[in-house]
Amino acid sequence: MKLLTPFFILAALALLSLSVQAADPGEPFEDPALEQRYHRIVNELRCLVCQNESIAESNAELAQDLRAQVRTMLADGATDQEIKNYMTERYGDFVLYRPPMRADTLALWFGPAFLLLIGAVVLVVTLVRRARQDAEEEAELEGREQ
């Protein structure tokens, strides 16, 4: 148990890192629903300066400016779609962590499920074939014994 303690600490630290948010200079919205929308949006926009962070997590100047921009647009009553359009018009679809569903992104959306399906089919076919083979061999052995 004692040996495992460091691992528990590591695991706890790993969990903590999931909820990291960069310091946010903007005033939070009074309306909790608006504040929630804000957090959802900034967590789904990629910071292009440090590409594995969302603009919610990044401390890059650009991310700070874009967070401020999202706040301003929300305060002005922009819809989520309008904010996403604003971002993709400037930075391309790459800023969206959730890419749009289009003909050229179908492989992205359904590719993994499709590959899983193929794997499942191959597995079932192999298992059925093997079971049949075993049954045949058994029948043959029984036939010989008699």
Partner: peptide
């Protein structure tokens, strides 16, 4: 100075 125009140009670095 504040990078507003750079945002409109999609500048990220």
């Amino acid at each position: 100075g504040d990078g507003r125009v750079a945002i409109d140009w999609g500048v990220y670095g």
